[in-house]
Amino acid sequence: MTKEELISPENIVYEKPRLLNDVDMHYCPGCSHSMVHKLVAEVIDEMNLEERTIGICPVGCAVFAYRYIDIDWVEAAHGRAPAVASALNRMWPDHLVFTYQGDGDLACIGTGETIHALNRGENITIIFINNAIYGMTGGQMAPTTLMGMKTSTCPYGRQADLHGFPLPITDMAATLNGTCYVTRQAVHTVAAINRTKKALRKAFENSLQHKGASLVEIVSTCNSGWKMSPIKANEWMEQELFKAYPLGDLKDLEEGVIK
């Protein structure tokens, strides 16, 4: 068989998701954001929810998410995505409403909105990209920055007496009565990507079935902010970030998992 015979449309087994637009994503090479965008597009397409999905963009690197996935989007003020999502879901209860937020948006300026939306048990999904740094503004310290981790605003490493401790917002969310599914995943290997895809699907199904709020944290890399190559950043994430943010389900009411 020649290569020309092989490369024909009927032999395609994997291609760019249909809902991912052709426009180039502005993310740095190897960024986890693009990976999660791809998964969100795949899951929405597989669930046939293209016409019934509303995403809420955050402020942060993912601020242009509305340009990349071909569904309806609303751009929220910084940190206010869960509040906007709550309103949209109450107006259109049959729609899938999800927010897509980074750690600066969700765990810093939007902590109040996030905690209260989760606690009210709004039927929304929150996708939380945790890369332990403020990627867009130049790698400053975030609430989720690890102890001892060097960033541009804590060049000698994060210290408890000066900067406080990392905020375990996902663990906090698991203790709230309004949440039905809280999980922590990553997108650095094929297996992890498949697990994250399943988690996203489960969270979206929970939202559609009005089971309560779902939070999917995705421990991510920010290779530009961390000043590493994409492959090195994945290794560093496995070695350091997973110690502070271990992967797995924190709460799943269906399976009876409550940690």
Partner: peptide
């Protein structure tokens, strides 16, 4: 390309969805 077994790993980890995988059995 003759050695490729179309496992899709490269395409799955590609953040930007740049890779299309073709597979055929003879």
């Amino acid at each position: 390309w003759e050695k490729c077994n179309a496992c899709r790993a490269c395409a799955i980890v590609c953040p930007d969805g740049c890779i299309t995988v073709y597979k055929s059995e003879t």
